[in-house]
Structure formats: C-alpha cells, structure tokens
Write a protein that binds this DNA or RNA. Sequence first.
DNA 1: CTGTTAGCGCTTTCAG
DNA 2: CTGAAAGCGCTAACAG
Lengths: 337, 337
Amino acid sequence: MTANPPRAKATTLRDVARLAGVSMATASKALNGREGVSAATRERVREVAERISFTPNSLAQAMLAGQTGTVGLLTNDLEGRFSIPILMGAEDAFGAGQMSVFLCDARGDSIREQYHVKALLARRVDGLIVVGSQTDPRQTLGRELPVPVVYAYAPSEDPRDTSVVADNIAAGEMAAEHVIANGRTRIAHIGGDINYAAARDRQVGISRALAAAELTQVGTTRYGTWTESWGRAGARAIVEAGNDVDAIICDSDQIARGTLDYLQAKRVRVPEDIAVMSFDNWIPFAAGSRPRLSSVDMQFHEMGRLAAQLVVSALSGTMEPGVVSVTPRVVVRESTT
Amino acid sequence: MTANPPRAKATTLRDVARLAGVSMATASKALNGREGVSAATRERVREVAERISFTPNSLAQAMLAGQTGTVGLLTNDLEGRFSIPILMGAEDAFGAGQMSVFLCDARGDSIREQYHVKALLARRVDGLIVVGSQTDPRQTLGRELPVPVVYAYAPSEDPRDTSVVADNIAAGEMAAEHVIANGRTRIAHIGGDINYAAARDRQVGISRALAAAELTQVGTTRYGTWTESWGRAGARAIVEAGNDVDAIICDSDQIARGTLDYLQAKRVRVPEDIAVMSFDNWIPFAAGSRPRLSSVDMQFHEMGRLAAQLVVSALSGTMEPGVVSVTPRVVVRESTT
DNA sequence: CTGTTAGCGCTTTCAG
DNA sequence: CTGAAAGCGCTAACAG
C-alpha cells in the first residue's frame, strides 16, 4: 500500500534555457554542438542541462526532422528458431547507431499483421523489416507503403520488393561436399518437412554436389517433420533398407540428434561407421550431443544485420529490388571427422 | 539499378480537412468520435480520410497527450532461453491493447544498458521492463526515473522497486514432490551452476520436500554447468558412487538429456529403474527425448504478461513495490511415470 | 554571438 | 454544429 514517490516530470529545453538565462534557440544550439555560440555560454548551458538531467524529447525532434530513427520489426514466430538470431542481427546493426526497434509479433495471422503495420506507420517508423517463419515466399505487404520494407528469411513473392534469404541450395551443396571431402561416398539424406522450401532446396543442393562428384545418393530422400522423433524413424528406415551407408545428412540438428540416438542404440559408431551432418547449427543441440554435430550454419544473425543495413541505406537513397542470398557456413565438429 | 518509385508522403489531417471542406478541428473531432459534429459531416470526413489513407501521426498525438503508448523492453540475453518467452508474454499482454514495444538488448553490459535507458527515455516511453538473465538480484536502474520500471526474472536488489520472478524454491519442492508421489524414495540431485541463485534455490526446495516426506537425499548435490555434458558426468558420478537411486532430479532439461544419455548407454531403464525429472520445460529438449522428460515449467510467458500488466497499471495509479513470484507448474511426461 | 519567429501535426478550449 | 487560436517541445531561418 506504499504510494510511490511522485514521478519527476521530464525537463524541457525551456527549463534549461530559463535556468541558463538564454533563449531556447541558443540553448538548442549549445547542446547540439551547432556553431554560433560562445564557449562560455555553451558550457553554462551544458552544465544546467546536466544538472537538471535534461533529455531532449525525441518525439519533438522527430516531428521537425521528418525522421523518427525507429524501425518496425515484424516477426511471425518469436518462439521460433529463426526470428531471434535475425532479430539480434538487426538489433546489432542498429544498436551501434541510434535506431530504436519496435518489435511486433503477428503470430502468422495476417489480420494481426495488418494491424501492426498500421500501428507502426502511425508511429512513423522510418522502415520495416518483415521476418517470415519459413523460407517459402510470402505475400507482399504492398508497394504503396510510405517507408522502405525489407523481407528477411521468407522473401516477398513480389520480385520488386527487397528480400534477404538463406541460400538453402548452397547449404545442401556444402553439406554434401563436406562429407565427400571426408571420404564418404555412400550418402543418404533424411529430409525435413516437404512443405518447406528449405527442405526441398537442400535436397537440390545435395543432388548437385553428388552429381559433381559423380556419386549417387543412397536411397531416395524421405521427408517427415523437423523433430528428433523423425530423425530416429528416418535413420531406422535407412538402416533397415539394408543399404551400405557411410554418411547421413539430416535437414536439421534435431533430426540429426534423433538419428544419432538411433545409431547409438544400434551400436553404430559415429563417425567411424557413419558420419552425420546437419543443418542450422542450433548450438544447444549441435554442441550438446556426443559426438558433437557438424552442421551448416545458415547465418541468421548475418541476415538480420544485412536486412538492417538495407533499411538504413534505403533511408538515404533508393533500394535495390530483388533477393539477396546469404551464404551459409559449415561448422565442423566430431560427427563427420 | 532500378530506381524505386517515389515514396508517397504521408497524408496529414490538414489534407483531410481541406479535401472535406472543413476545418482541422472538425476533421479531428469527426475522426475521433468526438461529439459536436453532424452525422453528414462526420461521414464525409471519414470517407476522405479513408480515400487518401490518412494515418494520424502518433508522435503529434503523443506530444499533446503526454503519453506515447510505448514501453521499453530491456533485455540482457536475447540469445537466452528466458528472455524470449518473457518478451512474448509482454508482447501478448500489450499487443491486445495499443502499446508498442521498443526492444533493446544490452548484452549484459551496463554501459550499453545506460545508453539504451537514455535513448528510451528520450523517446518518452511510458514504462520500462527490465529482463535479467539470471535469477540473482541485479542492480537497480535507480529510483529517479520519470517512468515506472518493472524487473522481470532477475529482481532488483532494491526492495522499493517492483519485480516479477520465478519461484525456484517452489519449483524444487514441486519436482521432489512429484517423484515422491510416484513412489520414489532414493532421490539424487544434479545441480546447475552454483553461481546461479536458481540452482541454489531449487536445492533448498528439494531439501524441504524431502524433509516433509521424511526422506534423505541420496548423496549431496553436485553442481556443474547448464549443459548436457555436465548431465552425463553428474549421472556417472551418482551411478559410480554405488548408491541405490530410483530418481534423479536435474536442474535443467539439458542436464537431464545428458543424464538420460548416460543412463541409456548403461542400459539403465528410465523410468522403470530410475526416474528423471528436470526444470525449465524447454520443449525442444524436454519433448524430443525418449522417454520424454517430465519437467517443471517456470512460466516465463506468464512472468512477461504479469510484468506488462504491472507497467500498464502503474500508468494509471501507483505501483506496489516488492517482489511478485510466479508459481511454476509440473509438466508430466514419461520420464517419471 | 544571441534572440525572435515560424512551424512540424495534432487536439482542445472557446467563440461564433 | 463549426472554426479560429493556442500550444505540446523542439529546431531552423533570419534578424538584431
């Protein structure tokens, strides 16, 4: 029942000016480092501002400048594995400067998304980053928006928009090349959910790398879900098919964990008998297993950073339409070497 | 090299008024549902506003109102397991209304934190939520801030502040009570990092529940790290100590996964021979293993929601100082039953 | 060097 | 019922 202390009302430039005995204009110039103020005056104004802990009202500044120094980050699965690193990358890229980020989660609901876009525009954000939850192209927010929009992870279906995506075909190639480089020739693939472009693209990449090495995939790719449980089932299917296999590429770290689990229960040695390679490099999963998993990192953080940079550069100039791919990176651990 | 289309400049109330042939005052009243406008005029104004897709400038509105309808969410490990659900809970609680959330990650750096606070105050947020990365009390942001502050997960060390925390002692009790209720009497505990209050508190809770059931813990709690690898080592230590054990409580799902891994390699059956119980209920880990893990959910989402509600209620009234605990919840799966 | 004036976009009295 | 005027906090001309 304790009442809180009365909140100090924020001080204004007018207070500073009055206390320093100058006009608001002079106070403004003094604090903003504009020239045309004597050193003495400037110092005095600064002291007053400091003393009464004056913080300029960004809203007022924004109204004059026509720029708010804010961007909206619209995500669709905060829960998810992908949004967060992308978000961090963006936060990183902005954080250094003086952009602030409005975070909105639309939960995959387009009504909700529309609502958030409207709210963000009302707040006069300078730009928008839209993070999808699948790599499949998503509907555009429209081309009539008064601010630049960059799509991350899920590209916009409209080629006139600007998107930053992960290169899953390259990722598939890199995964296969890595195990091939380690001397494996009998390679199988456990896919993720076939409804995801990520899963289909990785298969394309794997095929491409195998063809380049004049190898043939062992068995055909089976698709399932992005779970450990599917990893176990997929591994069993491969083993029970009786084919001779010396490497399994799994479409996610979780699938790979399931695969590892099955193989270990069967006393198959990893990597001696079968190498296991995965995608995403979700550290808690990839680095928690024994052996630890080699995995293709999709560089989400980098995607976020890039998206942020694109938005920033769009503020002063125009933005190239099209899709920018971020190149993945193989992280080698003990499951393949 | 395609130049983007010129961005439509945002329309203003003045435009609406002019096009509708009324004054700005009338247009304002019409759009905001104020009375004193004829139905006909109101309709006409609305149509115009709709036609030119007028979006009121929140900044201008905020300047008049003295409230921005924004809050700052200051986190210290976006990466982490805890911030995100809390963040989602807050987003949830606000999202329904018309609060927008500024997200800032201070990376555990107090200089950076200071910088963000300053920026948020400049943007005249109506309130602040500070999310810590450990349950240990953290330094206060100070009591002179012009806006209400709520600390989540990590409470403020200053009892005059308002904090929302997880009740780890209760969690420890609930975990022990659950395994006891399932007939286990020879219970061991693998702790997390002893430098975390969460780990120490859970031990307190476990002891309390064991005492209440007139049981004694098997061996003393060993502390390590929050990793699977420590889970394996800890389980080995328990097994090799040669004590008869029928349940192991692990301080996190990851530790439990390691424990499970070790037990399975040793052909110990879970839960028949030894039940395994954990904390956090991090779904990908807890529900991915076989058997799936029973785990104490710390209700992070709920904590975020509560923190948000506290901030909102502080806007219209005062805020109770002190620490609010969120009660955890046992999620039963197959590792204990 | 310093101060006066105008105005960003909006809402709110208070006259008409 | 409608509009003119004032002002939120700040900055950018332009005078002095």
